[in-house]
Design a protein around this nucleic acid. Structure first.
Length: 852
RNA sequence: GCACUCGUGGCGAAAUUGGUAGACGCGCAAGCCUUAGGAGCUUGUAGGGUAACCUGUCCCGGUUCGAGUCCGGGCGAGUGCACCA
């Protein structure tokens, strides 16, 4: 599948900006006392331009007819009660700069924003303060809206979405129904992660080291009827497409890890005295002759069948013990436990008699729920064998077998036995032994040969497994979109007809979750009692709501069509704008939101609703902002409130500083002091624009620097190298200031255009001051002129024997002999050259290296 | 344990295909201007040395005329995944 990367923005033909005919209307913002520094008042300037943009509809794009559409997406925030976090602003500003740049470069840029307002966050907070989420959320949204509008983002607010509003979640429910229709949504009783504090089921992705990622409570295992999406069916596609997606490597690798593809084999071991076989999954079929026992997951269905009568009590007790065990101990306790079933099976390769155990280090939900244990070559099996050595001796007298040896440097085998650790090597230094006909093979050869040999006997087949599980989308909570399903005694499970959507979330005062395992909605008969859409008889609504991540898994499809109320997304509009050209966001969503969004897009494509399967052609993960070397947290008291800084320094300075403090994709350290340097730069910019002369000619030396900086900024912004773009502009400002004469208009005008994506309000103010009526964002992107940027005299570094000894200034087109002559003419360089140079290396425009 | 990203002044950080290490900014120092200044302006600022010079990009090797950059091996940090066979 070839999707062309987004074309590098080509500046449109430069049009001559028209001078304003009207007199300047803005207030003079500088205190005219000459002893005062040049400084502008961002409070007035920013308010003025935000008003002007709103009045002019400057941020609006023609959705139906845009000729050069560019969809710039940023991750929408969850509207917390605390308000906008500096991390939000860092993310948004970086996206906004890219969007504004593309606009100046001639694209019709659509940059929407909205609110991920449903979810446990909001609900838990409402519970905590004794409020109702349906009342609290709009307040939080309003507060966010106020803060966002002050930060100067070029957002087309006509396309705002709010996932908690019926006109949005109506279509979230529609997405659910498409999944259901396509057989991708199903219900099953499953062991699920249950958070006893949040009183809800969590997706695997929301469990961190056995604890709830939201509240930190120990997660328990429960068996509940749940709705799932078949994400695992898409595992291979989700993995494969990562190869060609233009995404940050960190994000791709996180997804690869999460999908967790493993190639191996399923191998059957026949159980003695039963007409049954244990199927195991292994990635190391080459070690099969070292498989000295089998282990089933405690809940494996074969356990009841094979367990011998003398072992039945112990096995049952073990099953009970592990069933009740919560996931924390399952995931973190390293001590291996297990129980012998009394049964034996036959190793299909070696013919050896192997005992069958159960142990909770084998997971029922991966592979076949059973393994062949190779203590000689697997650390976990080794540990199990060590821990239970006594039991082994008495139960079945098993031994460890060595079937892979390390080949030491001399080519000899390192046959140290007995093993004191598992040797898990599989590279060039490993070779098969004690494996009959397969001795001497490498691991890779052994895998292939043994699998083929067992396949011939119908005892094995090559398989691929994924760690990716199906997505559990049910939540036994209140603050989410009700799942649009009705249960009818006659008709069974009935999807709500699309024309009856939305299934509106009712306002209920009592929305607190309880321990019952059912949603609070299940306590409201007046809501869940409904007539069956199919037969009209009394029926019952599904009372679970769906996972918040379903809301955000398709919101990018909604934005362009957000003004349409009859379809989730308009086909023409979608064809024009999607897939998203540029998505910028935090990598904390690498495996949750971004994977689900890809899955939903693929599923909708398969359902015939879309004609592309990857939603985000280009994704860039931004870094994290820390404060004075430490992560920001309430307990440390080092959380930044953007409002304070915006009031003190202005949104433009704050934005620009956030972009300047480090490489955007790596994040950086926020130091309160640092912002002053950026503000100084903007003040100076304002000063030179205000005082710019129109008489005389621009200085050619300054113009040369100007064209160099135009080039630099134009290259840096698409690469998200915002910090160096700003540095280059500062450098140019220093050139201007050190120039003998007051800056000429021609020397500052393009700089205003360059700075506009970073400091949009000030740029507009400057642009108006320069006499333009139209917005600077419709003025184009300055064109870099190679001829004007070229230096006539250049500096060449001179090395002698690879050591830098000085520099010479020569004409730009100087050839090697000229440079060499110039270099040898410098006594400080010549003194290191004794006799005739043996060799001379010349890199044009850069360096001369004389080997003496 | 596995994967990814990354180790450069007092600090945040720059550095095209390998080609003048430390741009830009903070901080600091000196000076100017001020009744005053957490303002503004000028200059300096990797370390050592009066100087010529010498030493310097986490450590050890390698490739190269030349390595912060490439290769091999360590050490350290951050993030993600993790009893996934």
């Amino acid at each position: 599948p070839a999707v062309a990367p987004p074309a590098a923005p080509q500046p449109p033909p430069q049009t001559q900006p028209t001078r304003a005919q009207t007199p300047r209307e803005f207030r003079y913002l500088v205190r005219m006392d000459t002893t005062e520094p040049i400084a502008y008042d961002p409070t007035d300037v920013e308010a003025k331009w935000q008003r002007t943009w709103a009045e002019r509809g400057s941020n609006q794009v023609n959705i139906e007819q845009a000729e050069r559409p560019f969809y710039a997406l940023m991750m929408f925030p969850y509207p917390s009660a605390e308000g906008l976090h500096v991390g939000n602003l860092f993310a948004f500003t970086g996206s906004d700069i890219s969007a504004r740049f593309h606009r100046q470069a001639g694209y019709n840029v659509f940059q929407p924003l909205g609110y991920d307002a449903f979810g446990i966050h909001s609900e838990n907070y409402a519970l905590k303060i004794g409020a109702h989420p349906m009342e609290l959320t709009p307040k939080n949204v309003a507060n966010f809206q106020r803060q966002l509008e002050r930060s100067g983002l070029m957002v087309d607010w006509r396309h705002k979405v709010d996932t908690s509003q019926p006109d949005y979640y109506r279509w979230t429910q529609w997405v659910f129904l498409q999944m259901y229709k396509q057989g991708l949504a199903y219900k099953k009783a499953a062991a699920v992660n249950w958070c006893p504090s949040c009183k809800t089921v969590l997706a695997n992705e929301q469990v961190q080291a056995g604890a709830c990622e939201r509240c930190g409570s120990t997660v328990e295992q429960r068996f509940l009827e749940q709705w799932f999406f078949r994400t695992s069916e898409y595992a291979e596609r989700l993995l494969r497409n990562l190869d060609w997606l233009d995404w940050s490597e960190v994000t791709r690798s996180a997804q690869r890890n999460w999908i967790g593809r493993s190639e191996g084999a399923e191998i059957s071991f026949v159980v003695e005295q039963h007409d049954a076989e244990v199927r195991v999954f292994t990635t190391r079929p080459d070690t099969i002759c070292g498989a000295t026992y089998l282990v089933l997951a405690p809940e494996h269905p074969l356990v009841d069948l094979v367990t011998t009568s003398d072992r039945i009590d112990a096995v049952r007790a073990y099953q009970e013990r592990t069933k009740r065990q919560d996931l924390v101990s399952r995931k973190t306790v390293l001590e291996k436990t297990g129980e012998f079933t009394g049964a034996f099976a036959t190793n299909p390769a070696s013919g050896a008699r192997v005992p069958i155990w159960i142990a909770d280090y084998v997971l029922m939900d991966y592979g076949t729920g059973a393994i062949m244990a190779v203590p000689g070559h697997d650390e976990r099996d080794f540990e199990f064998a060590q821990t239970l050595a006594g039991a082994f001796e008495s139960a079945c007298g098993m031994t460890q077998a060595q079937v892979i040896v390390r080949v030491v440097a001399s080519g000899e085998e390192d046959a140290s036995t007995p093993l004191d650790a598992a040797f898990a090597g599989s590279g060039a230094d490993a070779r098969l032994v004690n494996s009959g006909a397969f001795d001497g093979l490498s691991v890779a050869e052994g895998k292939a040969a043994i699998t083929a040999s067992l396949e011939a006997k119908e005892r094995a087949k090559a398989v691929v497994n994924y760690r990716l599980h199906d997505w559990c989308v049910s939540r036994q909570r209140y603050w989410g979109p009700p799942i649009p399903i009705v249960y009818c005694d006659s008709c069974g499970t009935v999807p709500v007809p699309e024309e009856q959507l939305p299934v509106v979330l009712p306002f209920i005062a009592d929305f607190k979750p309880d321990d019952s395992g059912v949603s609070p909605l299940a306590r409201h008969a007046e809501w869940f009692n409904v007539d069956c859409p199919a037969c009209g008889k009394p029926a019952r609504r599904e009372t679970d709501v769906s996972d918040t991540f379903l809301d955000s898994a398709w919101y990018f499809l909604r934005y362009p069509s957000a003004t349409r109320d009859n379809v989730p997304f308009d086909l023409d509009i979608t064809a024009r704008w999607l897939p998203v050209n540029s998505y910028i966001g935090g990598n904390e969503h690498a495996v949750l939101h971004l994977l689900y969004s890809r899955f939903v897009t693929m599923a909708l494509k398969d359902g015939g609703h879309l004609d592309f399967e990857e939603p985000f052609t280009r994704f860039r993960a931004h870094g994290l902002i820390i404060r004075d070397g430490a992560k920001m947290s309430k307990s440390k008291g080092n959380v930044i409130n953007p409002d304070e800084y915006v009031v003190e320094w202005g949104a433009d300075s704050f934005r620009t500083y956030l972009m300047f403090l480090g490489p955007y994709q790596e994040g950086g350290d926020f130091r309160s002091q640092g912002i002053s340097g950026v503000r100084r730069f903007l003040d100076r910019l304002w000063g030179s624009v205000r005082d710019a002369r129109r008489d005389g000619d621009p200085d050619p030396d300054v113009m040369r620097k100007l064209h160099q900086v135009i080039r630099k900024v134009g290259e840096d912004i698409p690469a998200l190298a915002y910090n160096t773009a700003i540095a280059a502009m500062m450098e140019y400002m220093n050139v201007l200031r050190r120039s003998e004469r007051t800056a000429h208009v021609a020397e500052v005008e393009p700089l205003v255009q360059l700075v506009a994506p970073f400091a949009p309000h000030l740029a507009e103010e400057c642009w108006a001051t320069l006499g333009y009526a139209k917005s600077v964002f419709d003025s184009g992107w300055p064109v870099w002129d190679a001829a004007l940027a070229e230096e006539s005299t250049i500096e060449i570094a001179v090395q002698v024997n690879g050591k830098t000894r000085g520099r010479v200034f020569v004409p730009a087109d100087a050839i090697q002999d000229d440079v060499l002559a110039a270099a040898l003419g410098e006594p400080t360089i010549a003194k290191f050259v004794t006799g005739e140079p043996k060799r001379v290396i010349f890199v044009k425009g850069r360096l001369l290296n004389v080997i003496a």
